[in-house]
């Protein structure tokens, strides 16, 4: 995965200089590759509680045409299912509230805080 210009490049730090490189797009701009979503989330401290603090009423979701939660959730916790419902996770949740705020169907997403001491812990917020 360590092609030149990868943000994960790990060479050349010995003399204080950092690796130079990067993909060059047709316009000549440097482009930095992203990292996988799993890798992105791996650095975050989640203390998963026993109780799901989000619940989704999939019956309501079947009639939803916008499904804003699926793309807007920064933790990517919502996945559409083939039968038109929404599959949700709660474990790696930032507890931001985006999902219920963008949800246009009253009562589809029930959102509370995780139990005390559980959930996300930001070290560098």
């Amino acid at each position: 995965m360590s092609e030149p210009g990868s943000v994960n490049e790990t060479t050349g730090a010995a003399d204080g200089s950092l690796p130079l490189g990067g993909d060059t797009t047709p316009t000549g701009a440097l482009r930095w590759r992203g990292i996988s979503f799993e890798e992105r989330m791996a650095g975050v401290d989640f203390r998963v509680g026993a109780r799901a603090h989000i619940t989704v009423d999939s019956d309501v979701c079947r009639s939803c045409t916008t499904r804003g939660c699926v793309t807007a959730c920064p933790a990517n916790l919502f996945a559409p299912t083939s039968d038109g419902g929404i599959l949700f996770n709660y474990e790696e949740c930032f507890e931001c509230g985006t999902c219920y705020m963008v949800c246009n169907s009253e009562g589809a997403i029930t959102w509370t805080y995780p139990d005390g001491g559980h959930g996300v812990v930001f070290h560098h917020g």
């Binding site: 943000v7 994960n8 490049e9 050349g12 730090a13 950092l18 690796p19 130079l20 490189g21 990067g22 701009a29 440097l30 482009r31 930095w32 990292i35 890798e39 992105r40 989330m41 650095g43 975050v44 920064p74 933790a75 930032f94 931001c96 985006t98 930001f122 070290h123 560098h124 917020g125």
Partner: peptide, 20 residues
């Protein structure tokens, strides 16, 4: 990835991702 921002960040590693 923007040409004005990328040079500031090259060689850096993601430590924590957050949302609020």
């Amino acid at each position: 990835a923007h040409p004005s921002i990328a040079p500031y960040l090259r060689g850096s590693h993601l430590r924590e991702y957050a949302a609020h």
